[in-house]
């Protein structure tokens, strides 16, 4: 199997005579030794050779699938981190780059003027915005009508809506623009949730003790 691929590479090299071909071939051999793992240079070269233009992109891709003990996408991620290469190159190579998803919590106060249907429509609108951007909704909690601690835009009550979701880090800016544009949204607050917050929310949702009850006696 290995021999076949090496031969395949050789043939390509002979045919195309690309400049980087020789290094590519050397790399193909060194790749089989597991030392490539900790060698940023070999990783970098490999990513260079895997670029879509490269004549042996295909053979390299198959090699990567066969010999590397980690899933290719994960390895590519690492290469990208080391070399800080543009994400486009990887997208073109047919491997979807997976961005890191963060946990967020959004709280919006809508005007109390909204009817039930309108309130639901607003919720759906923003939920859709998140899912369309590749995020997912963890939990949704419409508090409904609640009196405000102080008037906002001459209104003393508001419709509260709390949403926990995951999204990429650049998504919130887009969401913010939409929320600021929206006449119905009086105010919004977006917070990033750390691991303790996620745990707390999950506990609260399931009805388990969150630990804050202990403070009640003090």
């Amino acid at each position: 199997m290995q021999l076949l691929q090496d031969l395949k590479l050789l043939i390509i090299i002979l045919l195309k005579m690309e400049l980087s071909a020789i290094t590519g071939f050397l790399l193909a051999i060194t790749n089989n030794q597991k030392s490539f793992k900790n060698d940023p240079l070999s990783l970098g070269l490999n990513s260079y050779l895997c670029r879509p233009k490269s004549v042996f992109a295909d053979s390299f891709r198959t090699m990567r699938n066969v010999h590397w003990d980690k899933p290719p996408s994960q390895m590519l991620w690492r290469i990208n981190r080391i070399l800080n290469l543009p994400a486009i190159a990887f997208a073109k190579a047919g491997l979807k780059q997976k961005g890191k998803m963060n946990n967020y919590e959004l709280m919006v106060i809508f005007t109390p003027v909204l009817s039930d249907d309108e309130f639901k429509a607003e919720q759906k609108k923003y939920a859709k915005l998140i899912t369309d951007a590749g995020g997912s909704i963890v939990a949704e909690n419409p508090w409904g009508l609640k009196s405000l601690a102080y008037p906002i835009q001459k209104k003393t009550t508001g419709l509260y809506w709390v949403l926990q979701y995951t999204a990429a880090s650049d998504f919130n800016e887009k969401l913010k623009i939409q929320l600021l544009r929206d006449e119905a949204a009086l105010r919004h607050l977006c917070t990033k949730l750390d691991k303790y917050a996620v745990e707390y929310n999950a506990r609260k949702k399931s009805g388990a003790k969150t630990g804050t009850e202990k403070l009640a006696e003090v």
């Binding site: 709280m107 709390v162 917070t191 750390d194 303790y196 917050a197 745990e199 707390y200 609260k204 630990g211 804050t212 202990k214 403070l215 003090v218």
Partner: peptide
């Protein structure tokens, strides 16, 4: 520190009664 003693790691801004303490 009550938070250290009772191992409360996250303080929720939504929990008003808790914050009132």
């Amino acid at each position: 520190c009550r938070f250290k003693k009772y191992k409360i790691r996250y303080i929720d801004y939504k929990d008003v009664e808790f914050l009132k303490k």
